[in-house]
Design a protein around this nucleic acid. Structure first.
Lengths: 212, 212
DNA sequence: GCGATTCTAGGGTAAGAACCCTAAATACCG
DNA sequence: CGGTATTTAGGGTTCTTACCCTAGAATCGC
């Protein structure tokens, strides 16, 4: 792996764990196992790290929002869960720390609202597909609310479990717990086969998140 | 108002708005309209501010958890909403900024998990009362999940709306929005009169939060 | 009115943090 | 192999921040 990428991966991890402001450039360099001068070779300022991470985040998010539906409602839902959870987890400091940066990442700040609305749209469309396939019994006019509530739970699940004192590091099962938590919103309205499939998918999603 | 209290109220507001780490003691003093030396007269360190706020938070939270139910299921629910939302809003930086303090507020950290579990218990009991009164049609075995999901939405609603780019300062209607958001979880299973009462209570709750 | 408490103004310190600089060593790639 | 790119080590600067210190003024409360 190129050093520049290693720096970004490590910065992302530390920012998520400790918050942007609490991660010193000296600590980041040490965590990467490089001299601090090397960090400055690759990035002009600490903020440049943030900007680079913003671009990665934006690319990932846009890719997720552009994901086509295959037509298999259940598998499409599972795939969306996998991708969205990976993203929410991977870049959670962006939203949590927003008041902290001083100078905000303008890229993220400007687009967060529309990204979120499009996330609702996307999840709603997947839920509509489930309902239209007869896998989910839910009135059409309430699917939007379900999509929004599910998004909130998925988005904030990790924070929720941190608050609950449950370990949240990779491999701790928190992604799976978050997914299960969101399923409680509607699993009783799924067909038994669909519910079983979704539950079965949770371990796969967590494993995939670990491997990524 | 005594200066010490003014300092704490102002610190709380700024910490909520900007994050603990981003609020300098110089800015805090200026916002209070006092000389910085006066701040140090009242508080030995910045962290002492955090500890003092922790104690207030804990007292408020314990009082909320100890709230007796009057027996009127609907009014008890409304009252709990009012108190809990006020608390979630008033002390939101405590949870959001937890990775940022460096030295955590041990008081909050040690107790957050049990506070949260007891919050679930409390909300569940209120929902049970609604169901037992025939105001809410919801299977008993799923009321716990409803309580947890509602708590997450109430807890993180303000962050959610901030992410959505909706103004969140006092008076902006975000408390009301958050309350409405949580109602979408179960309002369709309330009796029409109960639903109307809860919706009607939202403006009251927001007004009360503003007056506080 | 007086002693105690609170507040001010203005100067200061130490530590930490982001980032700079430079020369030399090391690694990479065609 | 040689030129280029990357990395190191070690020294440094500037700015910011939390907090200190002091003497005197202002306020408070009995």
């Amino acid at each position: 792996m190129r050093t520049r990428d290693r720096i970004l991966e490590t910065a992302l991890r530390l920012f998520n764990e400790q918050g942007y402001g609490a991660v010193t450039t000296a600590a980041l360099a040490a965590e990467c196992g490089i001299a601090e001068g090397n960090l400055w070779y690759h990035f002009k300022t600490k903020h440049a790290l943030l900007e680079a991470l913003s671009e990665r985040f934006a690319a990932m998010l846009e890719a997720r929002l552009a994901m086509p539906a295959s037509g298999d409602a259940l598998e499409d839902y599972v795939q969306l869960l996998a991708v969205a959870m990976h993203e929410f987890r991977s870049f959670r400091f962006f939203f949590r720390d927003q008041p902290t940066y001083g100078e905000h990442s303008e890229l993220v700040r400007a687009r967060a609202p529309q990204w979120l609305e499009r996330s609702f749209d996307q999840l709603e469309a997947r839920l509509v597909a489930l309902a239209d396939s007869g896998l989910l019994d839910w009135p059409r006019e309430r699917l939007r609310d379900l999509a929004i509530n599910a998004t909130i739970i998925l988005r904030y699940g990790l924070e929720h479990y941190r608050e609950l004192g449950v370990p949240t590091e990779a491999g701790s099962g928190t992604v799976r717990r978050t997914l299960e938590r969101h399923l409680t919103l509607f699993e009783h309205r799924l067909t038994p086969a669909a519910a079983a499939r979704l539950h079965g998918a949770l371990a796969e999603i967590e494993s995939a998140a670990l491997a990524a």
